[in-house]
Structures are given as C-alpha cells and as structure tokens.
Amino acid sequence: MTLVTRSDFSTIAGWVAPSARVLDLGCGDGSLLAYLRESRGASGYGIEIDDAGVLASIGNGINVIQSNLESGLAGFDDQSFDSVILSQTLQAMRHIEELVAEMLRVGREAIVSFPNFGHWSHRLQVLNGRMPVSKSLPYEWYNTPNVHLCTVADFDAFCARRSFHVLERVVLRDGRRVSMLPNFLGSLAIYRFRRS
C-alpha cells in the first residue's frame, strides 16, 4: 500500500508533540496517522465511516474505528488526546459547531485544515457566475461532498466568536506558505487552536 502525503501533513506534524496521543477524524486510508507515527512517534486512532477507508487503514497498520463523526465522539473520554485532527474534512461535515466542540472536549488542542474558498480563482469563478472548480475544490456543484465551504476570514471569525485561542494558523498554496494576502492567495488553511 502506498501512502499519499497531502500538503498539510508536514505542517500538522510540526504541531504534534513527540509521542503525542492523536485522534484523526475522517482518517481515510490512515496516511496522516502513518505519517505522524513515522515522523513524531505519535500514537492514537483514526475515525472513518467509509468501508474502503477502514479497510485501507487496517492494511496500513493504523488503529481505525469505523464510526460516523456526525454522531459525535461519545466513545472518547474528555481530554484524552493531545491533539484531535480534522484534516480537509471540515467542509464535508454537517454539524460543524457540535463537532468542533467535541474535538475540544476530547483533545487538549484541535488541528483543522480546509480548502480556502476565498482563493482568488474561486472568487473569479463566482464573479463569472459559476460555482468554483479547482485543484483544492475538484468537484462540480452537483457531485460535491462539500456542504460547508468557508474562507480563512470566515474561520477566523468562527474562532473569535467562540473565544477559541488560535495558537497557529498557516495558509498554503501548492504546499508553500502564503504570508501575504492569505485569504486571497492561499488554497489550504491549517489552524491549531484550543479553548481559551
């Protein structure tokens, strides 16, 4: 089984303490957990609803628990993980507020990454009267799993309104850090935050 490395992996790994206990929500084939195990000696579990993802995770030697994130994290005790990660899954979730609350209940910190809807190419397509299709949003409006797209500015406001303490925020384009006009030039945003 070949593992794919997504562009947010190294940033996330940099935010995970050595030997940390992590919970990866929507872990897919377990690539991120395998990466964190290799690079940080991290351990923990992935949660995945899809049969193919569960099978692939098991094949990759990852602890995976088949479960629907939309029904919460009832199987996990309060503050039982160092980091709870939601990598490029946020935009496909229905109950975002509840899920983020659950992440901060079971974990000391939350790490969330999502495609930035504010990227200039998305704005341009909307201006031209079309739903955006791009490398980071590769779906057509009629077949997209994404139900809650947001921009960097939106997520900043989301955290501010809930008084979440954003410890770090990195915005990437083609895997490289964007420091100027991140909400305009960045395609992928990664946040690390906790309750204040």
Binding site: R21, S43, Y45, D51, V54, L55, S57, I58, I62, N63, V64, I65, Q66, S67, G75, F76, D77, S80
Partner: peptide, 21 residues
C-alpha cells in the same frame, strides 16, 4: 461491540473496529 472498543481505547490499547453492513 462499541462498548468493548471504548474500554480498550480507555486503556490506550491498539484496537481497530469495523462495522460491517
């Protein structure tokens, strides 16, 4: 089955869980 899984997670044991349709 999930009760078993939770008890194992609480003990930080290596566990995978599949719910087969």
């Amino acid at each position: 089955a999930r009760e078993i899984v939770k008890a194992l997670v609480d003990n930080r044991r290596d566990v995978s869980y599949a719910e087969i349709a």
